[in-house]
Amino acid sequence: MTKYTINKAFEKYFPYPIWKIEIDCTKKCLAIEYRNPENTLPTFAVFDFSGRDLLRSYEEQEKEWTLEAVQGDYLILKQFGSNTPIKEGIKIIHVPSKSIIYTGMEYILHDVFQGYIKATHRSIPSGLNFYINIHTGEIQNRINTPLNYPLIHVHYPPPYTGKLPQFIENLPVVDTIWLQPLKNNFIWAYHTKANESYNLNLCISSRTEIFDTKIILNNLTRLIPQPYFQVEEYIFFLSNTKQKIVAYLV
């Protein structure tokens, strides 16, 4: 890879809009939840930062299941409901085999740690916690080792409000421009007008010059309020239809 360039890592299309994204930085993988607008049933997919499919599609037949977390080979779902009493539940899926490690409707999920889910029992008074082992599905009422949160380094670029350098100031930027430091360089994101539509542009620069510029999304009907999210050296974009995710390595 040429130094200081923007290189596409992968591009993924989904038949329905993406609802949720969860990331595991330790194993460098993403989990996606997308839903059929007609029946709102969820489907889940998992792939790594190079775009390799780990779980192409896992369909649920109850719309109340939603994505909670991904930890390596394990997908964690949470069930919710609007009826009284609230129907809640927890499900752990082993990604490579698509087998269910644990399903429980009597526990309410409160937090996800590295290797464990913290939950309470529906029929036991508050104050007593239980811990579900993500790898085995076993339930314990105490943990002897410290619990740590998973490693998740997700960053969103803030809008830039300072004085623009000349090499950026002269660009035909429409509306907001975003700036994010990346090691010794800088990542800029901005829209430009293209006839009656918009393009979303990504630019990598030093303090004095532009190294590389790419049009990431084109023919947009409207401006995107949050252009991307960054995980380590990868930058991820969602299309305005939320049916495509594109990753770039910078």
Rank of each mutant, 00 (worst) to 15 (best):
M1G: 15
T5I: 11
E11G: 09
Y16N: 14
P17Q: 04
K20Y: 12
D24Y: 11
T26G: 04
K28P: 05
C29M: 05
R35K: 09
E38L: 12
L41Q: 06
T43R: 07
D48Q: 03
D48S: 08
G51R: 02
E59L: 02
T66M: 11
T66F: 05
L67N: 01
E68C: 07
Q71I: 04
G72V: 08
Q79N: 10
G81W: 09
P85C: 10
E88L: 09
V95W: 12
S99N: 12
I100G: 04
Y102A: 05
T103W: 12
M105G: 11
E106P: 07
D111N: 10
G115L: 07
T120Y: 10
H121D: 06
S123W: 10
I124N: 01
P125W: 09
P125F: 07
I132M: 11
R142F: 13
R142L: 11
L147C: 08
Y149S: 04
P150W: 06
Y160N: 10
Q166T: 12
T176G: 13
Q180W: 14
L182S: 01
K183S: 13
K183Q: 13
N184F: 07
T192N: 01
A194Y: 10
E196I: 00
I204T: 01
S205W: 02
T208H: 14
E209S: 15
D212P: 01
D212M: 00
N218R: 15
V231D: 11
E233K: 00
T241V: 00
K242M: 10
Q243V: 03
